[in-house]
Nucleic acid binder design. Sequence first.
DNA 1: CTGAAAGCGCTTACAG
DNA 2: CTGAAAGCGCTTACAG
Lengths: 374, 374
Amino acid sequence: MILPAINRLTVANTLYNEGVTEKPFKSSITLRDVAARAGVNATTVSVVLNGNRSGTRVSAATRERILSVASELGYSPNMAARGMKSRRMNSIGVVDIMHAKGLNLYFLEVLNGILEKAAEREQNTTVFTLSNWETEEDKILQFCDGRVDGLIFVGPQFRAEFAQTLFRRTPFVALHSNIPLPVSTTLEIDDEQGGYLATNYLTELGHRRIAHLAGPEHFSGANQRIKGYLRALEEAGIVYDASLVMTGEFDAPSGRERAERILDNGALRPTALFCANDQIAFGAMEVLAERGVPVPSAMSVVGFDDSLTARMTNPPLTTICQPFRQLGQHAVELLLDQIGNNAVNKPVSSEETTVIREIFPVELVVRGSTSARS
Amino acid sequence: MILPAINRLTVANTLYNEGVTEKPFKSSITLRDVAARAGVNATTVSVVLNGNRSGTRVSAATRERILSVASELGYSPNMAARGMKSRRMNSIGVVDIMHAKGLNLYFLEVLNGILEKAAEREQNTTVFTLSNWETEEDKILQFCDGRVDGLIFVGPQFRAEFAQTLFRRTPFVALHSNIPLPVSTTLEIDDEQGGYLATNYLTELGHRRIAHLAGPEHFSGANQRIKGYLRALEEAGIVYDASLVMTGEFDAPSGRERAERILDNGALRPTALFCANDQIAFGAMEVLAERGVPVPSAMSVVGFDDSLTARMTNPPLTTICQPFRQLGQHAVELLLDQIGNNAVNKPVSSEETTVIREIFPVELVVRGSTSARS
DNA sequence: CTGAAAGCGCTTACAG
DNA sequence: CTGAAAGCGCTTACAG
């Protein structure tokens, strides 16, 4: 049945005129429409379409007829209605924060992995955006409203108490949580080891005066990276110089500003920069290029993240690879496990509840922005 | 009422023991629970919570009580159930294709704009991923299943006939459609003008031999860019040399491969490259750097897109700015307009149906990868 | 000012 | 092998 295209009403009216549906202006075909036209009960249609023990239950002839009517009418089940009964929407929620300047590349890279794995597992992904983690707790609670089966939080900053409230409401996974969460599944990376690997590589190249352009002070990940930096220095027998650790934002302007301060400082310029993320490194490298300080010959630079842009700088950036896509993918699997365990019909007892904390390894990726101290 | 955190069952059991709910193991608080505890009918709760003419209808005291009980129990309405009645899920769907190698940066940048605008308009965004536009038409039809109010397609490749079928099923907007769609709202950019601006800038710099590393042959956008290239050449009185237009994929490896062919070709090397997107330009610039051909002194390079990475290359890339974020944002607005017009209670007549085709302007962004012919 | 009833489109016991 | 009925959690006429 090929209908002429005019608008969505046409199909409804045609079906009405043919006696298939009871009312005109009905925007979508329902189970009852299919049942009516196939001359059977809605139950039968439902059973056939869901493949539920349908092989045994329904005669081949009826089955055939229903299937052909369904495809003829272009029927597709209403997932909202189905979800109400089955308690499964086959859809996961991703919660991120949106700053005034928009989303960040970091989130998009993780989302990429989430979307890939979700597609593979035949789940849809719904993105919820927040403007502030702490003042919008109510909003977060409302995301558990029957549209999604569970939530993935990307870089959340929760109060511990709120994490508990949330835990009672929905299955969730926290990725790169900025505070340790008492009850939940959290997925992190080994920030300390990353800081160590980056700094250690520089000390092995002979650098002794290594500045660290760190992240914001209250971020646990940023602090772990500093710890790794300190461990590598200590191992190399280098005395810690507090003036070489400069905290700041995780972005390029902040990298620029700190690089300028270092260059303007005259005396005792460092020979290497370990930047707490690639954006900071990029900002710093811009300044170095502008001031005529060649990288890596006069200044080695190491980043952190191995984001999409790391290999596009010139020289390409040596950095710590944090596997964003795999992190996103793994978060989906952890969430799906939880959702499966918490199905309404098979509630878990409190003893079964396990708190999972996974830490992903990181690795050093050597490119062109580093060289031996000259 | 602060409950100890153990797991989701605890809250349900507590409410059961207190006599608030009828069954234990009930995962979420419903309207009836609130009504029961507030000693009113579900209707009243619904009316109060929806703000529907509630001011006049319900006494201040009842209202207060309901509100406080709702917040005490942490009630939030089930959107699936609500959506079934109201026919609005306040959620839009975004459909993209996922290649074996994952999503592309282009999609993520557009998605960024979509998410921003959707958040602003208090809509959620659900991402559906496809692996092939043409073989998965059925799957697309199933996205209109009551979970979303409309769909945005990013770079779709539809059969015209399918677009018509879809049009009868759901409001939708096609962004960067690769074929002209007969019925729908489409949003495009001025590819021809972009090709012209890029090439014209090069001719004005004195370049006469300008290669064009084009996109795939069957893409209408890529072909428009070629047209713009030709128009600029003609205007500058430059005879068209077919060997200088090389089609290929929209990615860096393809840019590399074509740049190598150009350099290996010996005779009559061009002095400028107009690349059909930034990725191609990036691949080409890598080869130029490797072969010791300085940019821009020995070879000017222009890209297309002004993607996030354009300013990270060295030298930063001169390119045509295609406003991805704004495109995504605008697509949301166009879709929301359509959804509003097609509300079930106020069906549009066929005369009201308008086919909208919007074309966004593009502009040249001059950075460091171009200079006058030496 | 408030409640009883019907219904959105499904699924899942339960009958026959 | 198939159907009638109840119910998922809401909203919206319609009564009182």
